[in-house]
């Protein structure tokens, strides 16, 4: 079986009720193909990136340099038809470097607002832990509110605004680790990791291209303007039965009661988890969420929130999932 292709026999029957749903799913698949082409051998990472995108969340990538994070972000930006900005966080980075600033125009004799890199559809914030806490706050505030205030004036960000922040877990010198409250604004934390040997070889082969091919492979957008927002709205309509909701709450409670976890999942984190599960179900072609969808995004969603080492977090999350009974009683009628 080729990597990246799905066996239709194993796919649950698609329940997309409208042509729009089917069209949206088709385009998302095209985005997936493009991303897989850009980042070879990382289907699971791409899946989670798509989930995060459709869930209107933001992504934290924790990895060493040179693993394809920027490539991934660029491919994503081109797919959704948006602008891509890259922000290299350094200790001397100011908040205005991110949000933009007002500058006096001598000709018009008025202050003009110069938008910062945050006014793009896809923003890659490299080594966010190198920026000062003040600068981090400015970015993270914008992520939460999708607007910035400069000189007393509010400026709305793009509806498709998506942040991919990165940090190097092995480099601690001169860093300002993100506090828990800020980490909670990210939907997921992923680690790309090194590709397999076969994929690395394929990557090398694919990099040998003519200039023309290189330009064509990046420039065309898959989604039209506003389409991503429509798909994101569809995701929010994915049904979640109250037994699955109780399951989510039980998992959150278990995380709060776990002796090795200082602070468990917050209600915001729980909401983000549910949204991510909805996105997962939507990508699977279902209009309802199952416990498998919840479990599939458990690791990336919880990893960003549990204040433990990466190796320990995998075990801890596994323990949490093992300890809570998967619901096997049918969902009841809607209560609210």
């Amino acid at each position: 079986m080729n990597a990246g292709t799905k066996n239709p026999a194993t796919q649950p029957p698609s329940l997309a009720a409208t042509a729009d749903d089917a069209n949206g799913l088709k385009k998302i698949e095209q985005i997936r193909v493009r991303l897989e082409d850009a980042l070879k051998g990382k289907q699971d990472v791409i899946q989670q990136v798509l989930v995060c995108l459709l869930a209107r969340g933001h992504l934290l990538l924790e990895d060493r340099p040179g693993l394809g994070k920027t490539t991934l972000a660029k491919a994503l930006a081109s797919s959704v038809g948006g602008r891509f900005s890259r922000l290299q966080c350094t200790p001397d980075l100011l908040p205005s470097d991110i949000t933009g600033f007002s500058i006096f125009n001598a000709e018009t004799r008025q202050f003009e607002f110069r938008a910062g890199p945050i006014f793009s559809e896809v923003l890659l914030a490299d080594e966010i832990n190198r920026a000062t806490p003040r600068t981090q706050s400015a970015l993270l505030e914008a992520m939460a509110e999708r607007q910035v205030t400069v000189d007393g004036k509010q400026h709305q960000l793009s509806n498709d605004f998506f942040v991919m922040a990165t940090q190097n877990p092995h480099e601690q010198h001169g860093t300002y680790p993100l506090p828990e409250a800020q980490l909670d604004r990210f939907t997921m934390k992923l680690s790309v990791g090194y590709p397999a040997a076969d994929y690395e070889t394929a990557m090398l082969a694919a990099s040998v291209k003519t200039e023309l091919e290189t330009k064509e492979s990046i420039s065309s957008a898959i989604l039209a303007a506003g389409e991503l927002e429509q798909i994101q709205d569809l995701v929010t309509q994915t049904r979640v039965g109250n037994n699955v909701q109780r399951y989510l709450v039980a998992l959150a409670t278990a995380s709060r009661n776990h002796t090795d976890i200082d602070a468990g999942l917050s209600p915001r984190g729980l909401l983000l988890w549910q949204r991510a599960a909805q996105a997962t179900a939507h990508l699977a072609g279902r209009d309802f969420v199952t416990p498998d969808d919840v479990q599939q995004v458990a690791f990336p969603v919880l990893a960003v929130r549990l204040d433990v080492e990466a190796a320990d977090s995998r075990n801890l999350i596994g323990q949490l999932l093992e300890s809570v009974e998967v619901p096997t009683e049918p969902t009841q009628q809607d209560s609210f």
Binding site: P12, R239, F288, P327
Partner: peptide, 12 residues
Amino acid sequence: CSVERHLYDPAV
């Protein structure tokens, strides 16, 4: 798929 639908889909 039918089991999943009956268990988790409120619309069932």
